[in-house]
Amino acid sequence: MFGDFDYKVILASLPYLFGTGMVFTVTLTALAASGGIVLGTIIAMMRLSGVAFLVPIARIYVDFMRSLPLVLVIFWFYFLVPYIGQWITGASRPISVGAFTSALITFTLFEAAFFSEIMRAGIQSIPRGQTSAAQALGLNYVQTMKSVILPQAFRNMLPLLLTQTIVLFQDTSLVYVISLTDFMGAASKVAQRDGRLVEMYIFAALVYLAICFSASFLVRRLQRRVAIIR
């Protein structure tokens, strides 16, 4: 069973797995999470704005994204982005934007739907009195949001935002379907090249487990601290 388990394959491929694969995974996660949180916050504010045409747009966007499998969305953007690029730049042919950009756009737009639900809950969890107090002090809508509501909502929701980022970190492995070399893609390329599927997939699983488990452990500690401060 483990008799012919070949550790050397793993050792030999470490630089490739981490230097190429993990760097890709972490970069994609960090950029998509930042973009997703910013866009998600904007969508959440649209949803709560009470403005007649903004509310349904935000709602439909969120419901739409949340109804589709991520794999399908990855395919969509992989093929759609070049056409959009062509449309924006007015080029004569669909422009090639590179698989990384395409993946980044996909994950940012997709995760924004999930982050927006978290931020919406966060904004709604701030007592109405806070808005009234800010307005009574003469702050306008943007100032109220920027200096009073969003900082509190963001802090309260930080654990959930980070948990969602861990989910995103795991989800980035799905770029496998468009043959990108993230951590999992790198592992699977080595696995197939050397015919060492057992070693490489178990190793990949353990690395993900270690990272995600430690990260969620830290998030739980943070959550307790946030809960106490509140």
């Binding site: 795991q170 989800d171 492995s173 799905l174 496998y176 999992m184 699977s188 599927l197 997939y201 178990i202 990949a204 699983a205 993900y208 487990l209 995600c212 488990f213 969620s216």
Partner: peptide, 10 residues
């Protein structure tokens, strides 16, 4: 804490 894709492969 293990991505679904990885579990699928396992």
């Amino acid at each position: 804490n293990i991505p679904l894709l990885v579990q699928m492969f396992l």
